[in-house]
């Protein structure tokens, strides 16, 4: 036998094994790394959602700041203060509190960007897969073009264009405005992945006979797409979405670090790192190190979850 004749039997055993042994919850419980990642992610969500109550200080209310508390090292180092667990920055803001608020912003931007690209990508993907023809060609070529542009470049361009357009208008280019620009910029560069995956999944589902059965009784196309096809293409979208969330958070941090993201008045994790790195060489390493660690931990946890989901659902992604 030249080639392994195993694939036939492999499929058979695979089917048997899946029937007996595939269970998302089980593979989750069995994997302590994933459980830890999930707990860490949940803690971030919790901390971000309830920052107002959890944070020991309100770092962005100037009236509560005192320059006397500025540049305190973390509590366990000499000169530290236990009411400022991770130390303070040059204006006396509590690092731990700024991280909580910063994580909130990072997560809001990340989630919104992912939702934006999912809605756009899935919508274009399922319709182009279902209808085909010239519409499909246009959408998929647009996706190709979009993929040639790095997301940071897109974000820089969008940011520049938006500022230029709105400069002369009443709309203020403040922190809130920056958040919308970021969500759009990060989201717009991720949609092709969803569109591609959903389109190919749609092509597979469309050819299955349950869709034919619905067509025979005259169910309208939009309803077939929405009720029949779409739910069967969501597995890979969930996986990409999770991995993309980590990516979106990093992109946001990168942009903020480069100074085109969220301004220091309402800093995200990326902004905190940028602001803090000026103090790195003057000895106040904690101002930038702790936000950086927080970012790494969050992204790592989300990424681990995404990888696990991909393996557990096992769609043939890349």
């Amino acid at each position: 036998m030249t080639a392994g004749p195993l694939s036939g039997s492999g499929r058979l055993m695979g089917a048997l094994y899946r029937g007996a042994d595939s269970d998302l919850a089980y593979s989750f419980r069995r994997n302590p790394v994933v459980v830890t990642a999930a707990i860490v992610t949940l803690l971030y969500f919790f901390g971000a959602a309830f920052a107002d109550w959890i944070a020991p200080h309100t770092p962005f209310d100037p009236s509560t700041l005192s320059l006397g508390d500025a540049e305190k090292p973390p509590a366990w180092i000499e000169g530290g203060d236990w009411s400022y667990l991770l130390g303070t920055d040059n204006q006396g803001r509590d690092i731990f509190s700024t991280i909580l608020y910063g994580s909130r912003l990072s997560l809001i931007v990340g989630f919104s960007a992912v939702i934006f690209s999912v809605v756009l990508g899935v919508g274009l993907g399922v319709t182009s897969g279902y209808f085909g023809g010239w519409y499909e060609s246009i959408v998929m070529r647009a996706a190709d073009v979009q993929l040639t542009l790095p997301s940071i470049l897109v974000a820089l361009m969008v940011d520049g264009v938006a500022r230029a357009i709105f400069a002369g208008t009443d709309i203020k280019t403040d922190a809130t405005f920056a958040i919308y620009v970021l969500i759009f910029a990060i989201g717009i560069s991720a949609w092709p992945q969803y569109a591609r995956v959903v389109r190919s999944a749609t092509l597979v589902e469309k050819s299955k006979d349950y869709v034919a059965a619905a067509r025979v009784i005259g169910i309208p196309s939009w309803r077939i797409m929405l009720r029949h096809v779409l739910p069967n293409t969501m597995g890979p979208v969930l996986v990409i979405g999770t991995i993309d969330l980590a990516l979106a958070i990093i992109t946001e941090a990168t942009l903020s670090f480069l100074g085109v993201g969220i301004p220091p008045t309402q800093p995200s994790l990326g902004t905190l790192i940028r602001v803090g790195q000026e103090f790195l060489f003057s000895g106040q390493w904690w101002i930038t190190l702790f936000p950086a660690l927080a970012l790494v931990l969050l992204v790592l946890a989300v990424n681990l979850l995404g990888d696990w989901l991909r393996d557990a659902l096992n769609p043939k992604l890349r």
């Binding site: 299955k208 006979d209 025979v216 069967n232």
Partner: peptide
């Protein structure tokens, strides 16, 4: 349309895996 329907070969692929049987039969 109501007067003709179709039964397919593959019993796996001709039923939407995410629908309850009740909803599948109720669709027509």
């Amino acid at each position: 349309r109501r007067r003709l329907t179709m039964i397919f070969q593959d019993p796996q692929a001709s039923l939407n895996p995410r629908w309850r049987v009740r909803d599948i039969i109720a669709e027509p």
